[in-house]
Write a protein that binds this DNA or RNA. Structure first.
Lengths: 242, 242
DNA sequence: CGACGCATTGATTGGATTCAACTAAGGTGG
DNA sequence: CCACCTTAGTTGAATCCAATCAATGCGTCG
């Protein structure tokens, strides 16, 4: 069931009917695969479809003229790439696949037609974008006011919480297919310093990383170190998905 | 006409009818004044009305346990404080008045009722939140990857562009009632370093600041120094407001 | 006038960058 | 099947940008 993550994510919203969710999935067309490191959307593009991640990781990013890059969001299964673009017109940032990514395409006209009849679904999509916005605010705080150790720890806590929401955490362990350079681009650090910071977190016993997986032996301890509280993620309730 | 800024801002959206705008203003109630340095909304609050800034400046901010503060947005006339809160429930950040602020209150039920009939207005409010989101992404880039000089210059460019949009720039001059500490909290710097940075920008002839006003002798030059392009503001067209 | 907020300046410290070298793992092609 | 190359991770030394700590100026307001 390729839409497991999407269902798990939107399913946390109390007032969303299963039938609404089913209608949404019904207008998902044309599932495609994008290879790692390929652009999914480039800055300036005017996509006509809304893209949803079904599998794999992607990143929103912005580039400076000197070539330095800032990742402004990580996208995991269930996340929308460009819910906004029908209204804003053009992409003001790019989206790149970090792993092999499977995408569903929703023609924006069909989505418009659907949301104008299904109020609960409209609200659910609002909720999704508002949570994205909330995460962006937290990232500004992260990059602006936390030191490297808290910054990296906080990012890992967030990814853990979001992966857990969509049922992709196995015990204390989750797949984390990010290079240290990508973590650096997300935290506003250099890859060298991310490396040293991860080593420190490892030495402190707060994390175990390797082989594309992250293990957090004591989630509470890492959250404490990061100053993380998940309230900005606005997770409403946990829906069990089989 | 207290709604001048709101009209100027939403009026840039091509497909918004004047009648829609009028209906929006019609449900604005209970204009109140908040003194400088007072909280408009506190973290955790569950406001029942949507607040719109009519006059003055405010800031969204987040606080860390060690007391350090990060401003995540500046709010100027025409900006909504909490368009989202009916869906997300609680505020995940605070909003503080930086100057004396005049606010209009819109009962969220009336807004819901209105938007369900007026599609253009719904789109306009979407547009406003999506632009806010886009600004947040640019701020992450600003704090994460630009040095102090670019960072401060970029912020000033943005505020200039936004103030111009709502008709509050007089030639090359605009009111900028921000302390250096507030600029520091927005850029992730310290007030001491903001001071030195402003001095440098002044010495380079890029800005003139003092008495709560900012003058930009050569906007193109400052934008060049900041690496600023306004495309992330998604300004569609300029509506002349008298 | 004295207190306070804000801006300014100097001296020092430190966290993160930069530059550079090196290892390990994985894939590719001859 | 192994030499070769690329990519990711690691380590060390030197440097630098911004933070920190501290003091001072200066205008305003009660």
């Amino acid at each position: 069931m390729p839409y497991r993550s999407l269902v798990a994510k939107l399913g946390t919203i109390a007032d969303l009917r299963e039938s609404d969710l089913a209608s949404l999935i019904a207008i998902c067309h044309d599932v495609r695969t994008v290879q790692a490191k390929r652009d999914i959307l480039v800055e300036g593009e005017r996509p006509e479809d809304v893209h949803v991640i079904l599998e794999g990781w992607a990143a929103r990013y912005k580039t400076l003229s000197d070539g330095s890059r800032q990742i402004v969001a990580f996208l995991i299964p269930g996340d929308f790439c460009d819910l906004h673009v029908a209204i804003l017109g053009h992409m003001d940032h790019g989206i790149i696949a970090l792993t092999r990514v499977r995408l569903a395409y929703i023609p924006s006209r069909e989505l418009d037609a659907l949301t104008s009849n299904h109020n609960g679904l409209t609200k659910a999509l609002w909720w999704a974008t508002l949570v994205d916005e909330s995460i962006l605010r937290e990232w500004i705080l992260n990059v602006g006011r936390r030191d490297a150790r808290e910054r990296v720890a906080h990012l890992l806590c967030e990814l853990h919480a979001r992966m857990e929401l969509i049922g992709l955490v196995d015990g204390k362990r989750l797949a984390l297919p990010l290079t240290q350079e990508q973590l650096a681009d997300a935290t506003g650090l250099t890859s060298v310093h991310v490396n040293r910071t991860l080593q420190r977190l490892r030495a402190e016993g707060l994390i175990e990383m390797g082989g594309g997986a992250l293990t957090i032996p004591d989630v509470a301890a890492l959250r404490e170190a990061a100053g993380f509280t998940g309230n900005y993620l606005h997770i409403k309730r946990r829906l069990l998905v089989t």
